[in-house]
Design a binder for these strands. Sequence first.
DNA 1: AAGTGGTCTAGACCACGCG
DNA 2: GCGTGGTCTAGACCACTTT
Lengths: 247, 247
Amino acid sequence: MRANKAPTLHQQIINDIEGNILSGTWPPGHRIANEMDLAQHYSCSRMTVNKALSQLAKANLIERRKKSGSFVTQPQAQSAVLEIHDIKSEVQSLGLHYGYTRASRVERTSTTIDMKNLELPDAGNVIEVIGKHYAGPGVFCLEERLINLAVVPDARDEDFVDAAPGPWLTSHIPWTTAEHLIKSVGANSHYAEALGVNPGTACLVIERRTWSHNGPVTHVRLTYPGDRHALVARFTPSDPTGKSSGI
Amino acid sequence: MRANKAPTLHQQIINDIEGNILSGTWPPGHRIANEMDLAQHYSCSRMTVNKALSQLAKANLIERRKKSGSFVTQPQAQSAVLEIHDIKSEVQSLGLHYGYTRASRVERTSTTIDMKNLELPDAGNVIEVIGKHYAGPGVFCLEERLINLAVVPDARDEDFVDAAPGPWLTSHIPWTTAEHLIKSVGANSHYAEALGVNPGTACLVIERRTWSHNGPVTHVRLTYPGDRHALVARFTPSDPTGKSSGI
DNA sequence: AAGTGGTCTAGACCACGCG
DNA sequence: GCGTGGTCTAGACCACTTT
């Protein structure tokens, strides 16, 4: 039920390929047909295909190697202004042991707050999952997530005990739009206990909403204790491809 | 003394136009020559010019209108992954009165900390400007800025008493690269007093480094009190042009 | 040596919107 | 109406890299 508007041909090609990549149909490393074959498939010139593939390469969804071909990029679906963080690899890149524990999982009809967080137009069933990510012995961040069952019904069959919902979601649902909100808050007693810090400790909070073609997918609030965490983004005016990462 | 590498022709065109825009030579609203004229000027085909202009339009540096032509975008040099915030318009867009006061201005040879903040390879003269931005009666944020006099010698003649250094810099120096670092810290007694909050209050800190072709331009640390401020960015996978703004 | 992407050309047709 | 950008074509040559 995707609303596939295709105003231009090269945009249609981009949409098709992006769909295959983000949905996981084409896994990382998958080789994409070469430009001449694609041109034949779409009954267009090579230039048109090249325009589409160049744009996908600039967005870091594919990698192009001469003589070899074009391949789906390895860190799939995680290239954007502010990356959809894979916390596990983030922790491991710091040389620390990664761990995850689920604190709770509740299925319910959406409350008013849920609807506001997900920007749901109507009430519906949601799953709330709360868990902690660990870096070595300490808590790395607290995750509070809402999943919209209307868009992701398969989530009903997942308990999210051993693995965080994030990676499962990105491999099951292709997202088309994401929004980050970043702020700083002092930990109240509830968060302080969960994170193992003193009440009032400054925490970096990242809230992310994600949409697919079918509507709101998920809302997640990641709370990082203290000043142990920072976001970095570097860019130039005409190449607004922010490379961002947690520290 | 700009290192003008031009590997491809359309990149050369982009560089030229971007230079004219970011340096202010072409002010907002300036009409750019049409594609045919540019093609003649660069002795290339219209496609090549089109590729360059399309890319600049996607980066929001120019706006293209049929029949009329291409024009330099209004909010100049402030379109990027994380915008180079114009705090004044940010405050005013909230319907609040904007104010600015300079607290101090010091010219000195760079300290070790200065060199680290600016990523200076060698010691040199810098200016440190500290000031406060007000929204209505309250402090909106504290600004601590270093300016590299080797790259911006004209800054020596500015006292930055009535106007913040940020707008002056963006209108005098075209920046080519910027890096943001975002974190959350608890206010120590010094910051607490400056911001008018209780010690320990969580603050959002945004540190930005900016470079031009000639080297490091400036380093600024903006400290926003409490959870009154948040950053927002929205994007899609194949269009990583994050629109971000303060709240 | 051969296949691939990178770039460019010299045209073309169309839609839009200003005059 | 007509100038502009938007898109596309059917070629071409080159650089690179793997075989």
